[in-house]
Design a protein around this nucleic acid. Structure first.
Lengths: 338, 338
DNA sequence: GTTTGATTTGTAATCGATTGCACGAATCTA
DNA sequence: TAGATTCGTGCAATCGATTACAAATCAAAC
């Protein structure tokens, strides 16, 4: 049933050598037109398909890249993967997917598995709980390009594609200020992660630049889910000087905040403005649509793929590229007073 | 720099044969404990990593499966992939992702590319515009398991994992009837696709079972996006006998419908109930949350993976398995009158 | 001291494709 | 027509691992 045709089968059929068949198929100039034509025809007739595994073993290149993300069903990450896939597929690359579930151990496993699978490169978003860096060095030591996207670590020799989280935080905060908000709070994620730290710093900088004073009580660090958004508002409500706006580093926190604000009878955006981060699909579908900072994940995927391609092209020149994409602020109802 | 260690390197270091090394690493009982220990230690010392490519070429099994979906950044599909990945990864399989963009040509390309890559199986959701079936036969002829999930075609030898779309349509419609709705409309996708046809049929059956008469004017077939939802409502508004509920075969259509209903000043769910399909993440985040039929995509992925595993296990027994999962109705505000 | 038998290791083919080198034939030069 | 080129193919090694079969080693038994 599994009638795999190899070049040897073709060779036998034509009473020539596999070497000749191989050369003919690869359009080697040393082969006569006659045999070339013959080989191509017989190959088609016998339904020959090149065995990429054999090729990969011989050439040392598998034409496969590994992509590691925390969860692939998170829109942000699946969009990045889409971007990567679309950039690499036309060049004959395949994309292998791995999930870390935000666990360092799994991340290390994934990397080892991908190395065993002889991938030509690894593109990844570092897990939240990763502290070691040894496994990254293993990759580099084997001469395999490594590209971080979104979540990065400082590792020499690794190219990164990130968005300017500082700018994102700054833009969002500035926008809130321009809407007339005076007491702008910030819901932050774990700031041991660079992305959250930078968003926070952008927020602070905007406050400073526009003469608003920073209030420690206005900053809450929590998980990025709806419930934490509720809790954050509950805390804010207890303050004497309540905030009148939130820049949230997560759309889910923003959503939770909005729900709880409504429960408290607070009118959005009239009395309170909210801006989220990530531009999750749901933010634009809400009746009270949520302003959010878009990270253009597909483009990030494209870029990560391109960076990888540059690295394989000039394998000798070890370039360590740092691409920083600019975020876009999507202004929606939750922060539109005009 | 790329200091790849092979079993030959280990063999040389220990002055033995690669065959012995191989056996030792595979814990072959014919190897003495002494050499086993020696080999394992040296392997660890030399940082040996098995080359899966060589293994794959030799064994004919790549421990890789291909997954083909229309778009990976659609929540439904990325969730399925998550389910597949999580089931197969612990068994040492890798998942290669391909997107068809709903185009038949791309689908064929993908399949060929995956066959060339010597995948051990292909799990896929058929593209909307696929009419030919030849490329599926190619896969089967090579003896490679093929599993359809969600979108299927009638191909002998292919196992399928689907949800009971009929039941989904039936449940949703029945629920609307029980909420007291009398004139239930249906927004449908292209019914040349089985899934939409079955949802439609479930809808009709429920009407019949509960003594409501089917009204052709209440059924609109369109694309699955928000705008089409608007248009559908515009049409319904022109009817003398307007519907008082919608079962939509898409959440996006449902959302569009709700938006337009509100624009017409119609109160949901008091005057009009809506149920969507797919349980897209946004449906539960809306302030007016949307009832929807959940397809449990992760479980669908798990199941598809398991079906594949059964097929590889009993390669000789060609079982054509048809698994039909039951959908769940998520009742939310858009249809909760009680 | 040989035979027997078990135990351990080596030899060499194999998976499918590529490629440097060599060889034979055809063509050309003088 | 001998000698030099060119052209087209074949030979055989290689990528890294597995494995049937053969061979070597050693110990115990007679």
């Amino acid at each position: 049933m599994s009638e795999k045709t190899t070049i040897y089968d073709i060779a036998k059929a034509l009473n020539i050598t596999a070497a000749t068949v191989s050369r003919a198929l690869n359009n080697n100039p040393k082969i006569s037109q006659a045999t070339k034509k013959l080989v191509l025809e017989t190959a088609a007739k016998m339904n020959y398909k090149q065995n990429k595994l054999a090729l990969a073993l011989k050439s040392g290149r598998s034409n496969t890249v590994g992509v590691i993300v925390p969860y692939i069903d998170r829109n942000f990450f699946s969009s990045i993967i889409r971007g990567i896939e679309e950039e690499l597929y036309p060049l004959g690359y395949h994309v292998i997917i791995c999930q870390t579930h935000e666990e360092e151990g799994t991340e290390i496993d994934n990397i080892n598995a991908l190395l065993n699978a002889q991938v030509d490169g690894i593109l990844m978003s570092v897990s939240k709980h990763t502290t070691q860096l040894d496994h990254f060095d293993h990759v580099l030591k084997k001469g395999i390009p490594l590209v971080f996207f979104d979540r990065r670590k400082d590792v020499k020799g690794v190219s990164t594609v990130t968005i300017d989280d500082f700018q994102g935080g700054y833009m969002a905060t500035k926008h809130l200020i321009q809407q007339g908000c005076k007491r702008i709070a910030h819901l932050s994620g774990d700031r041991s992660l660079e992305i959250y730290k930078h968003r926070y710093e952008g927020y602070k900088q905007a406050l400073e630049d526009f003469g608003l004073k920073f209030n420690k009580e206005y900053v809450i660090q929590s998980k990025s889910d709806v419930i934490s958004g509720h809790k954050a508002i509950d805390k804010f409500m207890k303050l004497d000087d309540r905030p009148d706006a939130i820049f949230s580093s997560s759309d889910f926190l923003a959503l939770g905040a909005i729900e709880q604000l409504k429960k408290n009878g607070i009118k959005i955006p009239e009395e309170f403005c909210v801006v989220g981060f990530s531009n999750e699909p749901f933010t634009k579908f809400m009746e009270l649509s949520i302003s959010s900072v878009d990270q253009s994940p597909v483009q990030m995927g494209n870029t990560a793929a391109k960076v990888f391609l540059e690295q394989v092209k000039d394998a000798k020149v070890k370039i360590e590229k740092k691409v920083v994409l600019s975020p876009t602020l999507k202004i929606r109802k939750s922060s539109s007073r005009s």
